[in-house]
Design a binder for these strands. Structure first.
Lengths: 205, 205
DNA sequence: GTCTAATCCGATGAAAAGCTCACATTTGGC
DNA sequence: GCCAAATGTGAGCTTTTCATCGGATTAGAC
């Protein structure tokens, strides 16, 4: 039976939460610098400055570390997103802030972002992660509903599409050695507003 | 030293090219059904109905198998693309055919497509693959130049963006158990034509 | 039919990675 | 200070995967 994904033991003292954090930081660092190939429990433990044994105290296996990393990232990103989506001002301004946040977040560790995205599709994601994912999508849909002429029913679909589009463009730019943030932002906004302005094409028979 | 990526030996007889094909088919099948985790040389050989030894006759290591798979896929996709981009009719019709081809190709083996895409970012790609990639982008850019009011200089960037956007949307739909091809096509076209219709947003200071 | 080069085979060793466990150390409550 | 519970350690066992090599088999030229 493959090891489970949920944490093995909950840290009770302060030092152990520090250990868990160190492990996640170490994992993130290794993924960013050496990719999935370099990601193994021994390397993560060394990088985190703890022993493998400690790692296995809190995580039943390496996939559990990955799942925890995904969860943490989803949490962080949702939090940033919620700040950016504050309900004041024009909906276009909110969308721009959202793009800003996404660009900053994903371009900060482009390789890591890419890997987490990939792994998220493979791992059965825990409730908290999928909840965060849903919340983010609803948040975007809410903004889209503030657009004049928006069809409320179609906003969920549009939100999902916009998320995927933005991720893809940022991700591609992140593979460049010297990403052009301003140009990237311009292109993401162009794609987003273009998608929204475009009346859905007529279905062919 | 990690094994190289270029093929080790070129097949000379008919049966050996059949072996190489079987290996690539086996690899594709395993990636589609068991993902990257299931992808190891022994499993590929078994699935291909050959022995590991034969695999290593033609590939110096598993990454070489992956590289060959990526190369074959790029070749195939470029060929389909070239057919679809035939220079007759409206540019919009050509773009629609392109989307059709992309949807069909990528939705045929969604997991495989996703993995190849991911691995392409990791592996140093051989000349033929990057050449095919370039050709495809130029092909799309050519179509975009036929659009009225198109800025020829900006078409390369737009082509790259459209490729990424289409890939992302198809990929996302491919993760559904029952993809909705028609709806997907509609959304991809919406994103594409929307992007193209949208005047690039003004740069903020 | 014979001969040579090409191809194929798969047991087997080497290497890497996953994971455990017996024991050491630290913490916090009393 | 003392003690129980929590936490930390890392050598080393197990499992998985990579890759090779000596020898068997097959194809195609003559």
């Amino acid at each position: 039976m493959p090891p489970a994904l949920s944490p093995r033991k909950r840290p009770r003292q302060q030092r152990s939460t520090a250990t868990v954090d160190a492990i996640l930081d170490g994992a993130a660092h290794i993924l960013e610098s050496h990719g999935l190939e370099g990601f193994n429990t021994n390397a993560v433990a060394v990088r985190a400055g703890v022993s493998v044994g400690s790692l296995y105290q809190y995580f039943p296996g390496k996939d559990a570390v990955m799942a925890a990393l995904i969860r943490r990232d989803a949490r962080d990103f949702l939090s940033l997103t919620q700040d950016a989506a504050a309900n004041d001002g024009a909906w276009t301004a909110a969308l721009e802030r959202l793009v800003d946040v996404a660009v900053a977040h994903q371009l900060d560790s482009p390789t890591l972002a890419r890997i987490l995205d990939f792994e998220e599709a493979r791992l059965p994601l825990d409730p908290e992660t999928s909840q965060a994912e849903d919340a983010m999508q609803r948040l975007i849909a809410e903004i889209l509903r503030r657009a004049p002429g928006a069809q409320p029913a179609a906003c969920a679909e549009a939100a999902a599409d916009l998320l995927h589009i933005a991720r893809a463009l940022i991700d591609a730019e992140g593979r460049n050695p010297a990403p052009d943030r301003a140009g990237l932002k311009r292109r993401v906004l162009r794609a987003a507003f273009g998608y929204l302005a475009q009346p859905p094409p007529i279905e062919h028979r």
